[in-house]
Design a protein around this nucleic acid. Sequence first.
DNA 1: AAAGTAAGTAAATATTATTTACCTCTGTGG
DNA 2: CCACAGAGGTAAATAATATTTACTTACTTT
Lengths: 197, 197
Amino acid sequence: MKTATQQHPPGKQKIINAMRTLLEARTFESLTIAEIALTAEVTEGLIYKYFKDKRDLLHYVLKEHYQKFLDQIDRDLQGIDGALNKLKKIIYSSIERYANHRVFARIILLEVRNSEEYFHSEAYLLVRQFNHLLIDIIKEGIATGEICRDLPPAVIRNAIFGTIEHSCLNRVIFDEPVSSSDTAKIITDLIFDGIRK
Amino acid sequence: MKTATQQHPPGKQKIINAMRTLLEARTFESLTIAEIALTAEVTEGLIYKYFKDKRDLLHYVLKEHYQKFLDQIDRDLQGIDGALNKLKKIIYSSIERYANHRVFARIILLEVRNSEEYFHSEAYLLVRQFNHLLIDIIKEGIATGEICRDLPPAVIRNAIFGTIEHSCLNRVIFDEPVSSSDTAKIITDLIFDGIRK
DNA sequence: AAAGTAAGTAAATATTATTTACCTCTGTGG
DNA sequence: CCACAGAGGTAAATAATATTTACTTACTTT
């Protein structure tokens, strides 16, 4: 995974920044092109020069963010041994990221999944990549005997992700503050050992 | 909870049916009022007679469905003892419903959460009601010692829901068929006893 | 039968997204 | 050195849609 933070023309960068700023507090659908252009101090036409349409811009913002996220995960995982330890780290990093990057959280938890195009976007490619990483770690854990072999890897991944996402949703939607490290510990305990006494 | 399937004027009912039909295969955002009216064999104006706007119609369809779902959950829970047994039943019923009612699944998993209005809708009130039911069962389980007392009820609920939703998402989005009872069993095992060997 | 009202219509209007045709620099090969 | 290609950018027209308005029609109630 190479970083190489791309250098955009000033107008394009202003559009991206405006989108991010506006999404901080507002819903994607509620934003108008006129408003985005105004915030970016750019004309509406320029947005269509760089992006296919409004959604394409959204997907682009997500893609950039997801790239940074994956890079960080890669760094975080350096030198960690054992599938469960790796999963623990990923859980923590994911929650941290949702907590510290509201726009990212908004987009991925609420804004993209309702359109077909998302599933054909480059952003979604990165999501799949992350997905594979997870599945591989889970398979590794099953192979080494750390993880129960009766559970399909995909379901385990769904449990991890689903739990994290739902736990972050209220924070994103209603702006409720929660401690990342506490949440991460609780979720890890739950996923690893279940809820039964 | 009273059922009392309401009797709508023919026009209103046709609008609701059209919405349901169209959502079977298409994204909410991609539907136009013109198209909905055409499918319903009704004029566009009539839609606004009965619903505040396009989203309000969506929320209405969800509300009607959620009502039926809650009624069924109530019936399903009759005569079941023990918090874990109740949770098991709820997990099964939820997955079943997502599997057999694609429109319901589409709406709740993908279409509503991206707008503020949803969280002020009557449909969301029902979601909260269901939520409380779950939390109460979990608390009961903690009180009787069935469920580990170190985990906050809200996180347990997030885990249950998050796992179910993510497991149903692929089915909804890509039309992948999965066995409800198998999925329910696996999810129950995972949530109850964790992934650790 | 008059008044009131629910169901429904048709056409105008408003709001936005998107397209088009254009301008203006700046660096590059002939 | 010059013309010209192409990137960055603009302004205004157009198209697609949601929403509002003012108006029927038919049925109830008194």
